[in-house]
Amino acid sequence: MAEPAPMWTVLVLPIVLGGLALFAASLNGVLTAVASGRRATLAEWAEPLRASARLLVRQRRTTFRADVVLRRVGIAGIVVAALLASVPTPLGGVAVADLPVGVVWFNAMEILLWALVWLTGWGGNSAFSLVGGYRFLAQALAYELPLMFALTAPPLAADSLRVGAIVQAQQDVWFALWMPLAFLVYLIGIVGVAFWGPLSPPAAADVAGGVTAELSGADRLVFLAGRYLMLAAGAAFAVPLFLGGGQGPLLPAWLWSLLKMAAVLAVLVWLRRFSLVRAERLMSWGWLVLLPVVLLQVLVVGVVVLLRG
């Protein structure tokens, strides 16, 4: 399905992913506005752009004896990790590179945030920012293993780690339909990776913004952008993995891909309307509920593959 990728895809990737991230930020802004009793005007949709302008003209401050190098590595690294994670994600039939181990690649790039978010929290040399970094790791220990197993279900069914092959294997039935639990656990995992919604304690108000507590100016802008990019990358990867990639009637494949990506992203953004999950609860739920559930799902997929022959 995926042809050798032309060079221009390298330029398209940041544009598409950036557009999706901006859509997520705008939707978030509009949901906030509506919850506050304001109308969803054009200005509210454009709010992320204005907020970016604000951060751009403001001073970048650091804290006392901050480890500026590590902090900048963390901040900028998240943007890079999100872009790299999307390298095997096809838009229609074309990905930047349909790697032979695309699924493992996505997993590896997404897990870079363990280091990057912690570094951002650590580099600030402030208690709340460090607490935020540690909270991320604590959550990661709860969601990462279920996420990894959720990621193995589609390759198991498609008999390939190549994303293109996984899309092709869904020509008759989308994987989301016959492995819904893996899809659900995958989405929960992505919410954790982007520390979004119920899994946003690493950047929550109770610790004054956590990892973001000491970020100002361009640093803050890049960090927040990285977080939205990661959320977008996760939503985008769900489409070839579970939702049949660019398959769909009438419209061209790339448009189907884009629509599905935006829909998944919208669902993820909407999750911000729930309250937070405490780290210790997430740990129990992750290991006692999500992990058995997803293992069972993988077992079912395995049996189906065997029976099919």
């Binding site: 493992v104 690649w105 590896a108 897990i111 990462e144």
Partner: peptide
Amino acid sequence: ALTVLMMTAEM
């Protein structure tokens, strides 16, 4: 890819 994955989590 596995080395990236394991080493990052481990470190």
